[in-house]
Design a protein around this nucleic acid. Structure first.
Lengths: 217, 217
DNA sequence: CGACACCGAGCGGAACTCGATCATGGACGA
DNA sequence: TCGTCCATGATCGAGTTCCGCTCGGTGTCG
């Protein structure tokens, strides 16, 4: 069962300058990210300064730059950490709930997604999808497998869905749509506007059943 | 016929410090935005400096700050101007093409949207929806009517669509979805990946016919 | 005591200000 | 109908402030 494979590395790859070795190092790194998260929540993306991160987390600027190459990397790492948590939450949900249809599995994904936006500070500002995508800097090709591809593998192997090569494509479209609608849900309502959340579910259900046919396990 | 009403103001409201009075002022403002647009296209969002904008447009830094309160406002104004052009393009398209069904009208919207991404410099970086939405700064409530609301009015009055109060909501969801998929289409391909563009059309068609029933005028 | 972790003054550069200077176009008299 | 005048819009750019980031030196774990 490949479900566990949708968990990624604990810490963002290639974003930190030096992986922390000692315990306090790891603590610091998390503290830095926590600080960044709450600040982003409060004053937004581009008003965040590295000095603020340092002050909030009780570190010095030097320490910030010990772990991160630049300001942007902090934000990216923040996203990565949140997504890593998201992935592991999905895994435990799938294992405990043991969904019997592919739709139940997807629905679980949506639920986790909503929880992610709700509970992860700063995430409703950062967003799931990285819109500043840089065309995959050549050289660093140990890039993490995209979420949609992994989920497509799971659906294929566990539920025998046959979307062919198109499955990953359609799942990516699905993820984009879901993120867009949920971002809207959380844009003005930090708890998430239920109307949009419900609509996201409905849209995804309609989109996916339109591709795979009615739900049946 | 209210079609004309979906054109907004000529210049972005509440983003410029001083509305230009004389002709050269308006020219300057446009020149500044043009410069910003091409620079964004070339080197991206956060490498854009106000000094570059000044130099490219043949102005001084002081002039930049005469019209814009800060760097971010330039980008916002850039989006607003592009969207204003988008609106007027839609108007002329609807008037010249005279679509006979509501779907044709929506399809025209999608076409314009794609053209917007293709032809408006910097727009594929800026994106249609503002993801930095700050909960509507209190005080400035002469905020522009959202695009989805206006389009919903047009569809209601011209094609007699009856989505009730829900129509505007569903159209907003539709716009969010479309922008998400099209952003993806233009993320790595400055001409737009046709596969995603087609999918955006398909998705919107499915979503909207699911709400209004099959297309018929 | 070696390596890991941390510090913070300081440097370069970008964002933004402000008082001085130039240009425009409407008022107004001839 | 013109020309000139000048209030006000528009422009300038050196200078200030603030921010991202470096680096050599100082703690503190194992």
């Amino acid at each position: 069962m490949p479900v566990g494979s949708i968990i990624g590395a604990e810490f963002p790859v290639a974003l930190v300058r030096t992986e922390p070795i000692q315990q306090r190092g790891a603590d610091r790194l998390n503290a830095l990210l926590d600080a960044a998260a709450t600040i982003v929540d409060e004053i937004g993306f581009d008003r965040l300064t590295t000095a603020m991160i340092a002050e909030r987390s009780g570190a010095s600027i030097g320490t910030v730059y010990r772990y991160f190459p630049d300001r942007i990397a902090v934000l990216q790492a923040l996203r990565e950490r949140a997504i890593a948590r998201f992935r592991s939450r999905i895994v435990s949900l799938i294992e405990t709930e043991a969904p019997s249809t592919w739709w139940d599995a997807v629905d679980l994904g949506i639920t986790s997604f909503v929880e992610l936006y709700r509970s992860e500070p700063g995430f409703r500002i950062i967003h799931f999808v990285d819109r500043e995508r840089i065309p995959a800097a050549a050289g660093a090709d140990d890039i993490e497998m995209p979420f949609s591809k992994l989920y497509s593998d799971v659906l294929t192997e566990v539920f025998g869905l046959d979307g062919g090569d198109d499955l990953a494509f359609h799942l990516e479209v699905a993820v984009e749509m879901m993120d867009a609608i949920l971002s809207r849900a959380f844009a003005f309502d930090s708890n998430g506007d239920e109307r949009y959340i419900d609509e996201a579910r409905r849209v995804l259900h309609g989109y996916l059943t339109g591709l795979f046919g009615p739900v049946a396990d």
